[in-house]
Design a protein around this nucleic acid. Structure first.
Lengths: 209, 209, 209, 209
DNA sequence: TATGAATGAGAATTCATTCAT
DNA sequence: CATGAATGAATTCTCATTCAT
C-alpha cells in the first residue's frame, strides 16, 4: 500500500467521523450527543475517534470549525465587493440560504451554541463567525454611506436570516406533531412558504431607506 | 388553617423546584441539566422532585408549560382586540419584550427546543405556543383585511421578535469572550443597542404596506 | 365515637394492611414487595403502616405468622386423632388443600421463603410450620406403628402436597404465556387436572405398605 | 493467536459474570439480587456487565437460559430411548439429582420463578423447561402404553423430584435455626436422609401400576 | 491505524423510613 | 389515629475515556 493510499484512508476515516459528529451534534447538541452514537454512525470504533481526533470536546471544536469555516468561506466567495449595496445584501441572504442548504446542520449547531450562551464555543469557530458578521457589517455600512440603507444592526439581520431558516427547517416536524391540536389548523397555510425568498424580500425591506 | 399552610408549603416547594429547574434547563438544555443541580439550587432533596413532579422529563415538560403558558397569557392579556392593527402589532412586540423580561429563561429554552427539532416538546407546551402564534396570525390577518398590512408569515415575525431578543441577551457573553479576536472590535458598537425598541420598529416596517 | 368503634376501626385498618401485605408479599416476595404498593393496595397512607405495625420486616413477620398460624390451626382442627392412619393422612391432604384454598397466598410465600433459604423466617412463623410438620410426623409414625404405612419422610410428603398445589396454581399463567412455543401443546392436557384429588391419591399410594 | 486469546478472555469474563450472577440470583432472587454484588463476586467492574450482557433483567434471562438449558441437556443426554419405561423413569430421577448436583443453584432459581408466577420468565428459558417436561411426558406415556405405568401427571412428577431436592437442600439451614424450638427435636431425624435415593423410590412407586 | 474490552465517575431513579401536623 | 411531605441511602444504569493488542 502506498503512502497516498494510507493517507486517503486516514482522511476518509476522519471525514466519516466528522460527518457523523456533525449530524449528531446538530441533532442533540454537545451535551446530548453520545460518543458511542457518533462512532456507530461513522462506522468506526469509538477508540478510533480518540486516536485520530481526541476527546469529545476536541471533536466538537473540530466540527464547529469545519461547519462555520465552510460557511464563512461560502459567504466571502459569493459576495463581490464591487456591486451595489442592494446587490450585495441580496447576495448575502442568498449565500446564507445556500450555506444552510449545503451545511444543513450548521443552523442547529449555532442555535445550540447561542442557547448555551456560547460558553464552550471554541476560538477557531468564533473567528469564523466573526468573519461572517464583519462581512455583513461592511455591506450595511457601505449602504449607509452611499445613502441607500438605513442604519440597522448586522447581528439582527444575520440572525433574522439564519434563524428564520432554522425555524422553517424545524417547523415541519411541529406540523406533523401538533396540527391536530385545537386552532392549529389556522396555522397550516403558513408552514409551506418559500422561506429563502420571503426572507430575502424582508431583509431588503428592512435595510432600505 | 393548617390545610392552607400545608398547601402553601407544598406550593412553595414546587415553586422552588420549578424555578430552579427553569434556570438550569435554560442554562444547560435538557441533556446538559443535572437533576442534582436542580435539587441543590432549589434547596430540596433530589427525591422531593420525584415525589412532587416525577422524572427529569416530566419536570422539563412542567417547566416548558409554565414558561410558555405564562408567555401566552402575557400576550393575550396585553392585546386589546379593538385597537387598530398597527397598535396591536406594536402591543404584540412589547408583550414579547415584556415576557422575555419577566421570564428571562424562556428564549433560551425555546432555542434549545427549536434546535433539537422539538422532538420531545410536550403537548401542553405546544398548545401554549400555538396560542401565541394564532394570536399573532389574527392580528396580521386583520391588518391585511383592513388594507394596512402586507401579507407576512406570522411564524417569521414571531421568530424575528423572540429570536432577536434571545440573541441580544446572549451576545453579552460573546462580547466578553471574543472581542480580542482580530476585527472583532468593528462589531462592538452593535452590541449595546436597545433591542426591544429596534425590533418594534423593524416589525412595523416589515408588516406595513 | 365509642371505644369499641375506635378499636374496630383500628382493627379494620390493620386488617386491610395485612391483607394487602399478604397479597403483595406472595406476589413479589419480601425483596420485591414495595411498602408503597402495600399501602396503596390497602388504601392507607404509607406512614400508617409504620404507625400500626412497624417496618417492612415486622410487617412481613406479622403476615407470615397470620398465614402459617392460620394454616396450622386449620390442620389441627381438621384432624381427629382417633381415626385410622389412612383417614388421618387423607384428612391431612384435604386440610392442606382447603388451607391453600382459603389462604391462597400461603404456598407462594412459603416457596419464596424456602428459595431464600429461610434466612429471614421469623421465629413465630417457624413455630407454626413446625406444628404442621409435627402433626404430620405423628400421623405417619402412628401408621408405621400400626403396620399400615411404610416409613416416609414427613417433610417430603408435606412438600409434595404443598408444592404440587402451588405448582398447579401457577402453571395456569405458564399455559397462557408459553403454549405457542414448539412442542408445548403436548403438555396442555396435563394442565387442567384436579390437583387436590390427584395429590390425595398419590400421597396415599406413597405411604401405604 | 491473539484472536483466540481475546475470545478466551472475553469468554472467561462472561463466564465469571454468569457464575456470580447465578449464585447471587439463586441466593436472593431477582428482586433481592444487587448488580453491585454480582460484579464484586465476579471480580469485574459493574459496567462490564452492562457492556457484555445488558441490564439486570437481560442478565437474569441469560442465567436462566444457562441453568435450565444445561439441565435440559443433562436430562436428554442421560436417557436412552431404547430402555424400558422403568429404567427410563429412574434415569430421569437420577438425571435430575445429578443436575441439581452440578447446578446446585438451579432448584432455588426455579422456586423463585414459580413463586413469582413466572411472570417474567424469558422465552428462551421457558423453552428449556418445556423440553424437560416433554421428555418426561414421553417416558410416562410410553410406560402407560406398555401397560406398566398408571397415568400420572408429568408436571407433578417433575415437581416432586425437583421440589423435594430443593427442600432437602434448604432444610439444613432450617435445622440450624429452629431446632431449639419446642417439639422441633421430633423432626431432626428426618433431616438427614438420602434425598435422591428416597425420591427415586417414591417416583417409581407412584408411576407403577 | 484500529479495535474490543474494561472501567471510574457520574447521573437518574427508587425506596424504606421519619417527621411535623 | 392518620397523613402528606420530605429525605438519605442505596440501586440501576450510562458514558467518556483508557488500554492492551
Amino acid at each position: 500500500m502506498s503512502g497516498d493510499t494510507l493517507t486517503e484512508k486516514k482522511d476518509s476515516t476522519i471525514r466519516k467521523i466528522l460527518e457523523a459528529a456533525t449530524t449528531v451534534f446538530a441533532d442533540k447538541g454537545f451535551a446530548g450527543a453520545r460518543v458511542d452514537e457518533i462512532a456507530d454512525q461513522a462506522g468506526v470504533n469509538k477508540a478510533t475517534i480518540y486516536y485520530h481526533i481526541g476527546d469529545k470536546r476536541a471533536l466538537y471544536a473540530r466540527v464547529l470549525h469545519d461547519v462555520f469555516g465552510g460557511a464563512a468561506d461560502d459567504i466571502e466567495r459569493n459576495i463581490n465587493d464591487n456591486q451595489t449595496p442592494e446587490k450585495k445584501i441580496v447576495a448575502y441572504a442568498r449565500a446564507i440560504a445556500q450555506t444552510v442548504e449545503r451545511h444543513p446542520n450548521m443552523p442547529r449547531i449555532m442555535m445550540y451554541e447561542i442557547a448555551s450562551g456560547t460558553r464552550s464555543f471554541p476560538d477557531e469557530a468564533a473567528k469564523d463567525l466573526i468573519r461572517m458578521f464583519v462581512k455583513l457589517a461592511m455591506i450595511l455600512e457601505d449602504g449607509v454611506e452611499k445613502g441607500v440603507f438605513t442604519e440597522v444592526n448586522p447581528f439582527l439581520i444575520h440572525f433574522l436570516a439564519v434563524g428564520s431558516l432554522i425555524f422553517y427547517k424545524n417547523l415541519t416536524s411541529l406540523k406533523d406533531q401538533y396540527m391536530d391540536l385545537p386552532e392549529a389548523d389556522r396555522l397550516v397555510k403558513y408552514l409551506s412558504t418559500n422561506a429563502a425568498g420571503e426572507i430575502e424580500k424582508i431583509i431588503l425591506k428592512i435595510v432600505q431607506r
